[in-house]
Write a protein that binds this DNA or RNA. Structure first.
Length: 500
RNA sequence: GGGCCGGUAGCUCAGGCGGUAGAGCAUUUGCCUUUUAAGCAAAGGGUCGCGGGUUCGAGUCCCGCCCGGCUCACCA
């Protein structure tokens, strides 16, 4: 028999022994008096004297370590990312409970009742008087010292990662704080949270290839949304002047350190403002999110310190000049000049050329949180033109850590212009651009009823979480990132084999 | 999709020159009533990712495949 099966059989056999000792292998409700984190916080710094008179506690947690010393022993229980030691001695508990302690496996979930004390070496511990068995682990836990290192297993069996690697747990706690911070800040400013379709008959609001699915009853193909944008703006037309949505977008594209096919986006729309207003709002939101998530505005990322307390601002043209490397640094006249742009890019139009040059020259250097504004109209089918420079639109993106983390603009609310933009996109599609927008007449119809001047913005929650948690890959901030299916697992077969 | 790297005990990793497969943790047994990567003594545990091939002999060499990581191209 393989070791793995031997261990499984051993634990399976142990279930009966646990039951013979008067416990259930898969126990019932257990009302603890204190969570382990609360005990650590409240009593972690108390001296031995301050812990008397005896404080009785009932705690519960997963067994992390066991150190048996004959007629006594120690174990660590973990709950919510914190650990507390228990001390079990044969003359302090019933014979059955001591036997139970002796047959505990690392990974079992137990409850313990006793009083707080400090050991000779000074560690805050529970002097156990009663044990209660709560749940049996049948498989062995990852190694105690190194944790779970196998990257594939960390993603496929995230629960093991969360049990074994406290840092991984912290990442997801921080992610939750980031989202909570956005919600709180937006609610304070009068935004309401809405939910718009994830399955859409037409996809739009971004340039990307969609996933396609099918609805049987209606017998229609639907697209998983690539963005909620067009629906959110319909709501602004309807008088929901400040709306936001935090939810998944789906894009049928490659995987990479900053790409997962489903990712979480915050989008918010505010009537009667424009992209300048959103720049200021973005700076406030990001600063406070960093504070709420990490306690400060500065984070270490990829060896650099990023400060979310202030956002640098460059126009796209300025950024090309600012971050140009090598000789022939262009002038402002150069980056405005169609001939110069044509010489430095293979793109057809001046606008696409500028965007392409910017991405090549500047994007990877935008480590510090930076706003890049005034984008070419060709790459922005839903943004309003600048009044004095119609080849540009009132749009900005937020970059940090060399990644785009936000995208915002003054929304185009002129239905006639919107129709022309869609038709331009259709032309691009006919020339082979698969990602060009489709015509969305229902959206144009909504604009025909009049949308107030509006600013809208999207912030990539996953990437922002990467930055605020020091994660080098998006898979470390998504609980269950997309992986190929792993094939035969064989657990059912192994469990079946245990039964008589 | 291309290139590079990896898959060895439940976990973390050695081995690589082709010649009976190793360590630590974990597990089992014994001793141990304030230990903490507890300690001491002993034991068990492996289709070396999968499938072919070369060879007297393959974890090791060759070919194909699977899974993963990094990276390039496309993409937020």
């Amino acid at each position: 028999m393989s070791l793995e099966d031997e261990l499984l059989k051993q634990r399976w056999t142990r279930i009966r022994e646990i039951e013979e000792l008067g416990h259930r292998a898969y126990g019932k409700r257990f009302d603890f008096t204190h969570s382990i984190p609360r005990i650590v916080a409240e009593y972690g710094s108390k001296t031995a004297e301050e812990l008397s008179p005896e404080l009785k506690v009932r705690i519960a947690g997963r067994v992390k370590t066991i150190r048996s010393k004959g007629k006594a022993g120690f174990a660590h229980l973990a709950q919510n990312g914190e650990q507390l030691q228990i001390y079990v001695r044969s003359d302090a508990v019933s014979a059955n409970d001591f036997r139970l302690f002796q047959i505990l496996d690392i990974g079992d979930v137990v409850g313990a009742e006793g009083y707080l004390f400090r050991t000779r070496t000074g560690e805050l511990s529970v002097h156990v008087e009663r044990l209660e068995f709560l749940s049996k682990t049948l498989f062995s836990m990852p190694e105690k010292w190194h944790g779970l290192e196998d990257v594939e297993m960390r993603y496929r069996q995230r629960y093991l990662d969360l049990i074994a690697n406290p840092d991984s747990r912290k990442v997801f706690v921080t992610r939750s704080k980031i989202i909570a911070s956005f919600r709180r800040q937006l609610e304070e400013r009068g935004f309401i949270e809405v939910e718009t379709p994830m399955m859409q008959p037409l996809y739009g609001g971004a340039t990307a290839r969609p996933f396609i699915t099918h609805h049987n009853a209606l017998d229609i193909d639907l697209y998983l949304r690539i963005a909620p944008e067009l629906y959110l703006k319909r709501l602004v037309v309807g008088g929901l002047e400040r709306v936001y949505e935090i939810n998944r977008n789906f894009r049928n594209e490659g995987l990479g350190f900053k790409y997962n096919p489903e990712f979480t986006m915050l989008e918010f729309y505010q009537a009667y403002t424009d992209y300048r207003g959103l720049m200021d709002l973005s700076a406030e939101l990001l600063k406070q999110v960093a504070l709420d998530a990490t306690g400060g505005t500065e984070v270490e990322w990829n060896g650099a310190r990023l400060d979310f307390g202030s956002l640098r601002r460059f126009s796209m043209r300025e950024a090309v000049i600012e971050f140009w490397e090598g000789a022939d640094r262009p002038t402002l006249d150069n980056v405005r000049d169609p001939q110069w742009l044509k010489r430095h890019s293979s793109k057809a139009s001046s606008g696409e050329a500028l965007a392409e040059i910017f991405e090549r020259v500047a994007e990877s250097q935008l480590g510090q949180p930076t706003i890049i504004y005034d984008f070419p109209v060709e790459t922005s089918p839903l943004s309003k033109n600048k009044a004095d420079e119609p080849e540009l639109v009132e749009r900005f993106e937020i970059f940090a850590g060399g990644m785009e983390i936000g995208n915002a603009y003054t929304e185009l609310n002129d239905p006639q212009e919107q129709r022309r933009r869609f038709e331009t996109q259709i032309g691009m599609r006919e020339r082979g651009d698969e990602e060009a927008h489709q015509m969305d007449e229902d959206y144009v119809r909504a604009l025909c009823y009049g949308m107030p001047p509006t600013g809208g913005e999207g912030i990539g929650i996953d990437r922002l979480t990467m930055l605020l948690t020091g994660s080098r890959t998006i898979r470390d901030v998504i609980l269950f990132p997309l992986l190929r299916p792993e094939g035969e697992i064989g657990v059912a077969e192994r469990l079946r084999a245990l039964e008589p």
